[in-house]
Design a protein around this nucleic acid. Structure first.
Lengths: 340, 340
DNA sequence: CTGTTAGCGCGTTCAA
DNA sequence: TTGAACGCGCTAACAG
C-alpha cells in the first residue's frame, strides 16, 4: 500500500514542470498536443486520480451538501434522503449525512460539525422542538445557503420547500362533512412546526366553509409518542360531543389512535373514522386503516429541495440575490378503498 | 458575508506567530497560560473555527466514512443507515452517502467518486447483481478498508458483518413442524443473494431434521415485485399437496402473499400460515400478520459493521494486519402474539 | 515558551 | 508552449 500518485511524481518522471502536468491533465488549450498525450498516458498508467481534498481545499468548495433530518429510519425521511441522494449524485455532488433524533442539542452539534467541514450548502428538516435558530443563522452568515425542507421554522428570509397541507386538510374536512360528520376532531403535532399551523388552518377553513361553529376542545395535540397520542385521544373521547371522525398528524399517530379507540370498544369506521397524513406504503395492509390519507409526496418534496439548493450554489458567485424561494407543493386527499 | 477567520489573522492581531496560535488553540503544554487565554479569547470573539478541509488535507485523513447501500427508502437499509450515522457521529466521524439502486454500474461509479474524496473507509452492501469486484479491490489497494454489510460477495480476504438467516430459518421450520405442518412452502428471493442460499439451506436442514422428503416444487422465488410474488403464491396453491405454511423472503413479500391468499378465499392462520423475515415495526398493525418473523436485526448489524470499520481505522497505522474479521450475527425466530 | 520553515496537492498568476 | 513561484490553512519539526 503506497500513497496515491500526485502530479508532482508525474512531472518528475516526465522531466517537465508540475504546472504543465496540471494543464495537460485539464486539456489546456496551449499545451503541446504531444506532451498532453504523454502526460495523460502516464497518468492512466499510474492510476493517477486528483486528490479532491487538495482541490476542495484550494477551491474553497467541497461539492458536498449536508443533510440533517430527524430520523432516517422513518419512512418519510428515508424516502426524502433517497431522493436527495439521487439528485445530488446526478449533479456530481456528495451528501454528508446527519440525524438529529429530534434533539435541538444534537441538531446544533451536527450543524456545527458539518459547517466545519465547509459543506457548500445544507438541507435541513428541523427537530420538532428546536426553538433557537442561532446555529442556522450563523451558517447563513458564513455564506452557506440553507434550504429548509418539510419542517420549516417560522423565521423570515429563508428558502424552503414544504408541502402545503392546508389544501389537503380542507379537502379532508369537506370529505368528512359530505359524509355527514358534524363533530370532527384533530390530533395535531408539535405547535412549533409550521405544517401543524397549516393543519389547524385547513381545519378551521373546512369547518368554516360550512358555517359550523369551531369547538376548540376538538383540536388536541400529541408530541408523537404513543402515550401522548393516547392521552389526546382520551381527551377527545371524554367530550360531551365526541368526534365521529378524527384527523391525525401522521400515519403512526393514526395507527396508535385507532388502536386506542379499539381498546375503548369503539367500532372503527362506524363509531369513529380516521384520516391520516403522509401515507406509508404499509398502511394498506393495516387491520383498521384510515378511510383516507392526506398525501405529502416526500420524494418530490426532497427532490425539489435538492434542486433548489444546487441551483443556489450555481448562482452563488454571480448575484448576491436577496430573493427567497418558497416552494409549496400541494397535498392531496387520497381516499382508501375500504375492506368490507 | 466574509471569509471565515484563520489562525493567520488571529496571529496578526496579536502580533504573535501562526504556530503559537495553533498551539494555544490546542492547549499545548508549553504555551504561556496568558497567551493561551488571549488567543482563545480572541478566537471566540472572532467566531474562529478551524477549517477542516485544510486539516484533512494535511493530515491525509478525512474522518469520513463512505456508505453505499442499495436503496435508502427500504426499511432494512434505512434502519441500517440510521445506526451507521449514530455510531459514526459518536466517534466524530462523518458519513458520506450513496445508493446503488441495485445497479452494478452505479455502484462502481459511486465507489470511484467516493474514493476520490479520500474517505477513510467504506461500508457497503453490494447491489444484488454485482458480479465484478474490481472497483472494490482497487479501493483496497489504495489502502481504504472496506467492511461488507449484509450483502456479502463471495470473495476471499474481506471483512464483513452479516446475519446468518440459516439458523432462524431452521428454527422457523421446526416451529412449523412442531405445530403439525407437514407441507411447508417457501417464497425465496433473488438467488444471487447469499442470504437466499442460507434460507434455502435452513429450509433443507429443517425439513431434513424430521426426515421429511424435500419437495422441490414447494420452494419458489419472487423478484420482490408484487406480481412476481402473486405468481409464486399461485404456483404454491396449485400444487396437489398445497402448503399449509409458507416462509416468505421479507415482510413485503409476506404481506403480498397473504393478501393474495385472502383473495383466493383462504383463511389466514387456519388454511394457511405465514412466517416472514425482517420485521418491520408496522407489522404489528397488520390485519393479518404472519405468525412469526425471523428477525435480522439491521440496526445491530449496521452498528457492528460501523464499529468494526472504525476499529480498523484506529489500528491502521499500527499494524498492517492480515486477519479478516467475519462477524456473523444469528437471526432468531420471533413469535407474534396472535389477535383473536 | 515561541518563532521560523517546510510541506500537504493542486490551480493559477506572472514571466519567460 | 512551458516553468517558477505563490497561496489555500494548518500542523509539526527544528531552532532558538
Amino acid at each position: 500500500m503506497v500513497n496515491p500518485p500526485t502530479i508532482k511524481e508525474i512531472a518528475k518522471k516526465l522531466n517537465i514542470s508540475i504546472s504543465t502536468v496540471s494543464r495537460a491533465l485539464h486539456d489546456h488549450e496551449r499545451i503541446n498536443i504531444m506532451t498532453r498525450i504523454r502526460v495523460q498516458k502516464l497518468a492512466r498508467e499510474m492510476d493517477y486520480e486528483p486528490n479532491q481534498k487538495a482541490i476542495f481545499f484550494q477551491k474553497k468548495r467541497t461539492f458536498t451538501i449536508g443533510v440533517i433530518l430527524p430520523d432516517l429510519s422513518e419512512f418519510y425521511f428515508s424516502t426524502a434522503i433517497s431522493a436527495i441522494e439521487d439528485i445530488s449524485t446526478q449533479h456530481k455532488y456528495s451528501v454528508l449525512l446527519g440525524q438529529s433524533h429530534d434533539s435541538e442539542e444534537r441538531e446544533k452539534h451536527l450543524v456545527e460539525s458539518i459547517m466545519h467541514q465547509r459543506i457548500d450548502g445544507l438541507i435541513i428538516s428541523i427537530a420538532k422542538n428546536t426553538r433557537n435558530y442561532d446555529h442556522l443563522i450563523q451558517l447563513k452568515r458564513h455564506g452557506v445557503p440553507i434550504v429548509f425542507f418539510d419542517r420549516v421554522p417560522a423565521i423570515p428570509d429563508i428558502h424552503y420547500v414544504a408541502c402545503n397541507v392546508e389544501t389537503g386538510t380542507v379537502q379532508a374536512v369537506n370529505f368528512l362533512l359530505a359524509r355527514g360528520h358534524r363533530s370532527i376532531g384533530m390530533i395535531n403535532g408539535p405547535e412549533s412546526l409550521y405544517s401543524c399551523r397549516q393543519r389547524k388552518e385547513g381545519y378551521l377553513k373546512g369547518i368554516g366553509s360550512q358555517r359550523l361553529k369551531y369547538e376548540p376542545e376538538l383540536v388536541t395535540a400529541t408530541d408523537l409518542s404513543r402515550e401522548s397520542t393516547e392521552q389526546a385521544m382520551a381527551r377527545l373521547l371524554s367530550l360531551k360531543r365526541k368526534p365521529t371522525a378524527v384527523l391525525c398528524f401522521n400515519d403512526n399517530v393514526t395507527l396508535d389512535a385507532i388502536e386506542y379507540s379499539r381498546k375503548m370498544k369503539l367500532k372503527i369506521n362506524k363509531d369513529i373514522s380516521f384520516i391520516s397524513f403522509s401515507n406509508q406504503a404499509l398502511i394498506r395492509y393495516a387491520a383498521f386503516p384510515p378511510i383516507a390519507t392526506i398525501e405529502q409526496y416526500p420524494y418530490e418534496q426532497a427532490q425539489q429541495a435538492t434542486e433548489l439548493l444546487l441551483d443556489l450554489l450555481d448562482k452563488r458567485e454571480q448575484t448576491e440575490s436577496n430573493s427567497f424561494k418558497k416552494i409549496s407543493l400541494e397535498s392531496r386527499l387520497a381516499i382508501h378503498p375500504q375492506p368490507k
